[in-house]
Amino acid sequence: MSGNSNSNDVVIRVHGLVNAFNGKVIHDHLDLDVMRGEVLGVVGGSGTGKSVLLRSIIGLNHPVEGSIEVFGTETAGIEASELKGLQLRWGVLFQGGALFSSQTVAENIQVPLRRYTHMSQELMDEIAAMKLSLVGLPPDAAQKYPSELSGGMIKRAGLARALALDPELLFLDEPTSGLDPISANQFDELVGSLQQSLGLTVFMVTHDIDSLRAITDRIAVLVKKKIKVGTIQTLVHDSDPWIHEYFSGSRGRAALAGVA
């Protein structure tokens, strides 16, 4: 799925990242490079700081130490709202969707369009409808409020909003959690096809081993406060007990049947 990009092209470079909360160290000098055009899956047990890593990269969490470069710009320790140039180039799908509850789905999608472009209302409506159909929502979802949507629809609407400005880099925080397997598969296919057609780089925190198999190029596993990067094929044979258990447990085996 990658291969359409220069492998030296690093979009996110995390170096020596240290995160600690109330003295408890979550990340201990962690390094990670994300290449342009790849889909990177980030996995790890509960409390290993997957979301914290994501939040650090997008500037919502200030690390204790270390540097994080996105598109060559340092984001560590800078207020999220000050990363203006970067925010046009990335989209974030939060775990719960994080749709603005006082606005309809269409208005949610149009928030970044309204803020950063000078489109006519008609064009914005068309773009919103187009994004909705891209993420597989029916047209009548546009005028609904987030409270009227199901969990899966909220995720899709959140993805549509994250894609509003056609970003180069997409952050997904557990995109398929809470979806039924069919919707989850569709979501994976969707992310995969969007990734291909838009040349997206995708940073995806997930627990879903099917997603990992379906769309990721590489997998970053958070173990022992560090990161181990590999492909499914290499990680299956990893010596670390958590990684071994993750890929060789009954769920892992079923999902990976035929891979290793």
Partner: peptide, 11 residues
């Protein structure tokens, strides 16, 4: 992908 979907503008 886009052509496969039925596209109707938001009313």
């Amino acid at each position: 992908t886009m052509e496969a979907e039925h596209l109707a503008p938001v009313k």
